[in-house]
Amino acid sequence: QEELVKAFKALLKEEKFSSQGEIVAALQEQGFDNINQSKVSRMLTKFGAVRTRNAKMEMVYCLPAELGV
């Protein structure tokens, strides 16, 4: 569980995922086979993730800066 949270936060820091499906796929690539869209959705809510525009003006998920991840 701890490893999943770390990987999840690291992915969001990249600010390149525009959908929950993309986050699920990226986590599965890292070996988290039991991850699915509903789990990702709950984690996004739990950590207060928001959708914002990145440098390329794409809408992407990211974590609020005050979490200091």
Rank of each mutant, 00 (worst) to 15 (best):
Q1G: 12
Q1F: 12
Q1H: 10
Q1W: 14
E2V: 08
E3R: 11
E3C: 15
L4R: 01
L4H: 02
L4K: 00
L4N: 00
L4Q: 03
V5N: 13
K6H: 10
K6P: 04
K6W: 09
A7L: 07
A7P: 00
A7G: 03
A7N: 04
F8M: 08
F8C: 11
F8G: 00
F8N: 00
F8T: 03
K9F: 14
K9V: 14
K9W: 10
K9E: 08
K9C: 12
A10P: 03
A10N: 10
L11Q: 01
L11D: 00
L11V: 05
L11R: 01
L12W: 03
L12C: 04
L12T: 01
K13I: 10
K13P: 01
K13S: 09
K13Y: 08
K13N: 08
K13V: 09
K13A: 12
E14C: 13
E14L: 13
E15G: 07
E15S: 07
E15C: 15
E15F: 06
E15K: 07
K16F: 05
K16Y: 04
F17V: 04
F17K: 03
F17S: 05
F17Y: 15
S18A: 10
S18C: 04
S18T: 12
S19D: 08
Q20K: 14
Q20G: 08
Q20I: 15
Q20F: 07
Q20T: 13
G21D: 13
G21A: 14
G21H: 11
G21N: 13
E22T: 07
E22G: 09
I23M: 07
I23L: 13
I23R: 00
I23F: 09
V24F: 06
V24A: 09
V24C: 06
V24H: 04
V24K: 05
V24Q: 05
A25I: 12
A25R: 11
A25Y: 10
A25V: 11
A25S: 13
A26Q: 09
L27T: 00
L27M: 06
L27S: 00
L27F: 01
L27W: 01
Q28M: 13
Q28R: 14
Q28K: 15
Q28V: 12
Q28P: 00
Q28G: 05
Q28S: 09
E29S: 12
E29T: 10
E29P: 01
E29K: 11
Q30G: 07
Q30M: 12
Q30C: 06
Q30P: 02
Q30L: 14
Q30T: 05
G31C: 03
G31M: 03
G31E: 02
G31K: 03
F32H: 05
F32P: 02
F32T: 00
F32E: 01
F32I: 04
F32R: 01
D33K: 14
D33W: 12
N34D: 13
N34V: 05
I35M: 08
I35E: 01
I35C: 02
I35N: 00
I35Q: 03
N36I: 05
N36R: 07
N36K: 08
N36L: 05
Q37N: 12
Q37T: 12
S38Q: 13
S38G: 11
S38C: 05
S38R: 15
S38E: 12
K39M: 15
K39E: 14
K39Q: 13
K39L: 14
V40W: 01
V40E: 00
V40D: 01
V40A: 03
S41F: 08
S41Y: 11
R42I: 13
R42A: 14
R42P: 01
R42C: 09
M43V: 01
M43D: 01
M43T: 00
M43F: 07
M43L: 14
L44I: 09
L44Q: 01
L44P: 00
T45P: 03
T45K: 13
T45Y: 08
T45V: 13
T45C: 05
K46S: 12
K46N: 11
K46W: 10
K46Q: 14
K46D: 14
K46H: 14
G48Q: 07
G48V: 02
G48E: 06
A49N: 03
A49P: 02
A49M: 02
A49G: 05
A49E: 02
V50G: 07
V50E: 07
V50Q: 08
R51T: 07
R51P: 04
R51E: 04
R51S: 05
T52Y: 08
T52H: 11
T52D: 06
R53H: 15
R53K: 13
R53P: 13
N54H: 02
N54R: 02
A55V: 08
A55Q: 11
A55S: 13
A55H: 12
K56E: 11
K56M: 10
K56F: 09
K56L: 10
M57W: 09
M57H: 14
M57P: 02
M57K: 11
M57A: 10
M57G: 15
E58D: 07
E58C: 02
E58Y: 04
E58S: 04
M59D: 06
M59F: 12
V60W: 03
V60H: 02
V60L: 02
Y61P: 01
Y61E: 01
Y61V: 02
Y61T: 02
Y61D: 01
Y61H: 02
C62P: 01
C62H: 07
C62I: 10
C62S: 14
C62N: 05
L63C: 11
P64H: 04
P64M: 04
P64I: 05
P64N: 05
P64C: 12
P64Y: 05
A65H: 11
A65R: 09
A65N: 13
A65C: 03
A65S: 13
L67P: 15
L67Y: 04
L67E: 14
L67N: 15
L67S: 15
L67M: 11
L67D: 15
L67F: 04
L67Q: 15
L67V: 15
L67T: 15
G68E: 15
G68Y: 03
G68V: 07
V69E: 15
V69W: 03
V69F: 05
V69I: 09
